[in-house]
């Protein structure tokens, strides 16, 4: 019997049947779409800034005293408090902090008194030098591997391929990047003496840190890509495309790939923002002069302006990345654009 009536509003939050033949006034959804994403980014950034600001004030005890240690004289503590503006009322501090963030003035380290902005300015590009190539490599590996395995293992075929794929990616997926870094370092630096041990000393020093960052995310993303591709391969529109006898290349590239991008990229964004965080750990293993080697020290030394600065920069990078992915999705998948407007 017909299922026509299921189109009627049925849930507690029914999405009223879209005007099926939209009018021309909806012709330019792009501007609204990008604007809505930008607005979301600004709100998120504001929340991030506020959170890092509040963090310092939620720490039990006096942060300056904690940073300078028990031996510090009250005069010194008071002086530092004044320098940091911590003796002002909270709203004034917040405004000051906001203004600082906007102008790029992130305050000074409590410990070294060096400007945090300068420190991050020299170190953050080094972090990006790891994260960006890793990002690109993850995509370049995960998409073809996932799609190919999906095609090979569709409909219960290729059980051996499936078994190898699932187990290998499962293993790589379970090796955290810092352990991978350790193992790589033991094998290739200590054992085979192929690569430099630590630091940024030339092209060869990139190989191991980037590899350590790529393996895990590439494995988990290719698993997701495979599952998504299997879902798409099972859809009626792929069947319909097959019924039109389209050549395989066209079938996979035009009919399958764009449709698995939504979920793949959404998960991909999470994995890749995890990758930004992963640099923190990997840098520590290879003594890479990025922000990661700074933060653990800063947290232990309770150097709050520095911690704030690192969290801000990394957090902003993640948010920006998410927005880029969102916009990309809008390009690839018209439905997500529509969803943004509802």
């Amino acid at each position: 019997m017909t299922t026509a009536t299921t189109l009627e509003p049925a849930g507690p939050l029914p999405s009223p049947a879209l005007p099926a033949e939209p009018t021309a006034s909806r012709a330019r959804p792009w501007i609204r779409f990008v604007a809505s994403r930008l607005l979301r980014l600004v709100v998120s950034l504001l929340v991030l800034v506020t959170a890092t600001f509040v963090m310092v004030h939620l720490v039990p005890g006096d942060p300056v005293q904690a940073a300078l240690g028990e031996q510090a004289t009250p005069q010194l503590v008071e002086l530092r408090r004044h320098e940091l503006g911590l003796d002002q009322p909270l709203p004034a501090q917040y405004v000051h902090y906001l203004r600082g963030v906007v102008t790029g003035d992130l305050g000074r380290s409590i410990v070294t008194e060096a400007p945090v902005g300068d420190l991050l300015g020299t170190r953050f590009p080094n972090t990006l030098r790891l994260a960006v190539p890793a990002f690109v490599l993850v995509i370049l590996i995960a998409l073809p591997v996932g799609l190919l395995t999906a095609v090979r293992t569709r409909g219960g075929r290729g059980r051996v391929t499936r078994g190898v794929f699932v187990n290998v990616t499962g293993l790589f997926n379970s090796v955290p990047d810092y352990v991978m870094a350790t193992v790589l370092s033991v094998v290739f630096v200590v054992g085979l003496k192929l690569f430099p041990a630590a630091g940024l000393t030339g092209p060869r020093s990139y190989v191991l840190p980037v590899a350590a960052l790529v393996v895990g995310p590439a494995a988990s993303l290719s698993r997701i890509v495979r599952v998504e591709a299997l879902k798409v391969l099972d859809t009626e529109y792929v069947r319909a495309a097959k019924s039109r006898r389209l050549p395989r290349r066209l079938l996979y590239l035009r009919h399958v790939l764009p449709n698995m991008m939504t979920a793949s990229l959404t998960f991909g964004a999470m994995i890749l923002s995890g990758l930004v965080a992963g640099t923190v750990l990997v840098e520590n293993v290879f003594g890479w002069p990025g922000v990661g080697t700074v933060i653990s020290q800063a947290v232990i030394q309770k150097d709050f302006p520095l911690v704030q600065g690192v969290l801000l920069v990394l957090g902003a990078a993640v948010l920006l990345l998410n927005m880029v992915v969102d916009v990309l999705l809008g390009v690839l998948d018209p439905r997500s654009r529509l969803g943004a407007l509802r």
Binding site: A4, T5, T6, L7, E8, P9, A10, A17
Partner: peptide
């Protein structure tokens, strides 16, 4: 037809809408 509101009417009558 679908979207004519007949099911919504029924749901309202039993208190679901």
């Amino acid at each position: 037809e679908s979207g004519s509101g007949k099911s919504t009417t029924a749901r309202a009558v039993v208190g679901l809408a």
